Computed example of a mutant assay.
Amino acid sequence: MPSIDLNSDLGEGFGAWTAGDDRAVLDVVSSANIACGAHAGDPVIMLDTCRAAADRGVAVGAHVAYRDLAGFGRRPVSVTPDELYADVVHQLGALTAAARVAGTAVTFVKPHGALYNTACADPVQAEAVVRAVADVDPTLAILALPGSELLLAAAQNGLRAVSEAFADRAYEPDGSLVPRGRPGAVLHDPEQVAARVLRMVTDGVATAVDGSEVRVAAESVCVHGDSPDAVATAQAIRALLTAHGVGIASFAGATAS
């Protein structure tokens, strides 16, 4: 049976503030990108989310970001490569410890928000992120857009480069994501998104905002956990893929229960 990984950004609360229904999403996805305290997440949330993922056999990834709690990590931050390197090392260390205590392990890294967008396009930032990951644990995979500077740097540094597609984000004709500030950048209809993902997985294409076809080659598909439609969307995707004979399994080896 062919299979695809479903990943979601989770653990994105802070203190008394929560974002999304993480446990319901964890019941559906196969990989969890857990916030490491820079854009969201705190020690209690990180450990709790790792435990919930471990209980469900969901693979754990580090969702590293610029230090920007107020902006949820979606604002560009001016940092030197050495500062970014240290930030990523710090965040990886924190989540690695939480995962170990929870009885699981970090198996991959996926940058968040502005860091994701910048490092996918900027070879200097990409190299800083990947160098930090490689120095902490060279067995970790890097999850990012196909053809990005992040995946190129991962391959050059001997790390596994895993390409992903986005279920609920609109694409530009060149395969990049439509910026969140533009209308239609985020898709909200669960059935429409599920049909889109099925086409990505089975045909390797998605329709861009201008109506053109974009090639999509991905080992993983992201469903954003902070969206109000996250649970319904993830459930619709899994149901439709399963109905068409596509299994849900993490590229890291763990399988969702």
Rank of each mutant, 00 (worst) to 15 (best):
G73S: 12
V201Q: 01
R74S: 03
A52W: 05
V25H: 03
I237L: 10
V44Y: 01
L143P: 08
G158V: 02
D168N: 12
I248Q: 00
V133W: 00
E191N: 14
A141V: 06
G225Y: 14
S8T: 05
G15D: 14
A170T: 02
P183K: 05
G158W: 01
A119E: 05
D189K: 00
T80S: 15
A195E: 15
D9I: 05
G225F: 12
L145Q: 12
N157D: 09
D21E: 15
P2W: 01
A153C: 12
R160N: 04
A232V: 09
D48I: 08
V186G: 06
A218Y: 04
L26D: 06
L6T: 08
A121C: 10
S212A: 12
G71A: 03
D9F: 12
F14C: 09
G73I: 06
R169D: 04
E172M: 15
V223Y: 06
R160F: 04
A249K: 13
V246E: 03
A239M: 03
P123Q: 07
P190T: 13
A99S: 10
G184T: 10
V162Q: 01
S3I: 00
W17S: 04
G253L: 04
R74Q: 01
D122N: 07
L47M: 10
G245P: 12
E164V: 07
A144R: 02
V216R: 01
F14V: 09
G113H: 12
D210G: 05
A161Q: 07
D87S: 15
E213V: 15
S3G: 04
P173L: 07
S3V: 09
Y171I: 06
P123D: 05
T202I: 09
L145G: 02
V58E: 05
A208W: 00
A256S: 15
C50P: 11
A121T: 07
G147R: 03
P179V: 11
M200N: 02
G71V: 09
A194L: 09
